[in-house]
Every structure is written in structure tokens, then in C-alpha cells.
Amino acid sequence: MLALTRSLWQNRRLLRDFVRRDLKARYVGSSMGFFWSVIFPIVNLAVYMFVFRLILKMRFSDSASPGDVAIWMLAGITVWAAFAETVSRTTNTLVENTNLIQKVVFPSEVLPAYLCISSLINMLIGLPIVLLGVWWFAYGPGSNFETETASLALQAAESRPRDQTLGFGAPMLLLPVLMALQALLTVGLGYLLSTLNVFLRDTYHLVGVFITVWMFATPIFYPERMVRWDYKPALDRFEPGQYAWILDVNPMHWLIKSYRDVLIFADWPDPLMLGKFALVALAVFALGTSFFQAQKARFPDLL
């Protein structure tokens, strides 16, 4: 773990070149340039809003305004997209760069790391849209749209007993911490899966399937409450949900929930939840990097 981190530091220039090159590749060839990192989540959002709210008529709460729900969803989508993209790209990265690994002395640990950094930067570019939305509904023209009820509605969606209103605040300072923890988990998974993929190319396809399942197991498009509680009409009350355990074993739920607290509610995230996430992220990072380090010398022979 330490050796790998040290090597990344030694190769920071290479890492920087790769990140720069990847960001350029994302935007330079396309005429819309940087707008794509904004447009993509928004289109996603429109599709999911359409499906979940208009077709399936899913109720976030009695009086949630569409704008608030959109912001809430967008925050989740942006974070998830960065995570999912990195995991699936890193899985194949060693195989894709066979030419470098086999033909020159190449520090292959750079590859998963640069993909992770690049997508985090890309996520940072998409975040201002979320913040703009928060400003619009909290302080701007959207705020006279009964902010009070709207935020109450979201509060119900979050099923949290705390007072949550949209807004900016000091908790936003935690953003770098969240991103660092996200990076740790993502790159750890990247090291683990990319190494596995060298041995078994099916890994790449498995990861694709797994990511989709994981996305729907995470409250991104639906409120946590709907999983946490089941309404029993016979008893006219809420019982603990049958699938609530999924939330308790899903680190990405903890992460996205913390992001939402920090980004759109100006609230401090649950320290216990964040602590759990940090532990998991560290463990995955340690596991991934040590597996990668142990097999690294064999890559040129195996690819």
C-alpha cells in the first residue's frame, strides 16, 4: 500500500499527463466540449424523472416540488456516475494498455489512478449545476415557490427527524473529505478488479452487470424512506421494510447520502455513517492495492 502510494508520487508527472490527456480526450474532440459533463447527468435526470415520477407516479411525499426532487436526484446521479464510470473503465485499463506494460518499463499503478482522478475532476465540473439548483430553489427565483413545504417534503423523503432545508453552509467544507474517501474506494476497487481482469477477462463483463444492479440497490432515484419503511394499510402504520438491510450494507448509499447532506442541505453528515464509509474505503483500498502489488510483476507475462 505504501510502496504503491510512493510510486504514484514518484510518477506524479506521468499521472498528471495521463489525467490531462484523458480530460482533453473527453472534451477536445467534441464540439460541445465541457458541456457534455453537464448535459449527460441532466439528460439522465430528465429520463429518470420522467420514468419514476410521471410514468410510475412514484410519490416522494405529499408536496415535494419537482425542482427539489430534481436537485436531490441530480446530486446522487453525479456522484454515482463518477463512481460507476471509473470502476468499469479501470477494470479494463491494464488489458487496454498491454502495449505499454509489455513493451516498456511502465509503472502500471498509474493507470487505475489516473482514471479515478480524471473522473473526479469531471464530477467537479458537473457539481456547479447541482449548486446552481440549490441556489435557485433556496435563495433565487425558485425560493418563493414555498421553500418551506418543499424542504419539508424532502425531509420526509429522507425520513430523517432533523430539520433540513436547501442551502449553502459550512458543511460544504467537508466536500474534499468526501471526494478523498470516494477516491480511496474507487481506486481500491479499480486495482482489485483490473488485476482480476488480467487473470480472467470475464471480469469486465461481470463488472458491467454488477454496476447496474448496484445502481438500483442505491437510493438514487427513489427515496430511502421507501426501502426503510413499509406502509401496512391494514394496521395503518409503518413497519420496518423487508429490504432495509440493503441500505445497511451499501457503502455507496452512505456516501451519496453524505454528499446530499453536505451539498444541498447544508447539513453535517452522520459521523457514524461517514466513519463506516471511511473504514470500508480504507479496507477496499488496502485489499486492492496489495493484490495489485503482489501480481504486478507478472502483468507483462500474463497480458
Binding site: N11, R13, L14, D17, N97, N99, K103, V104, V105
Partner: peptide, 28 residues
């Protein structure tokens, strides 16, 4: 310091430009 020319195009990233590949190879 060892420089090697093992095969046609070895050590080049196909998507990178010639300029970027020069920088890549030199930093390696």
C-alpha cells in the same frame, strides 16, 4: 539508463499524439 526499441510502435499510446508520446516515453 536503458532505452529500447523492441517492436514497431512499442511503448506508444495509440490515442496520444506524437508529441504526447514523446513526453510519455521520455518521462518513462
Amino acid at each position: 539508463r536503458v532505452a529500447s526499441l523492441l517492436e514497431l510502435g512499442a511503448g506508444f499510446h495509440p490515442e496520444f499524439s506524437g508529441r504526447e508520446n514523446i513526453f510519455l516515453n521520455c518521462s518513462l
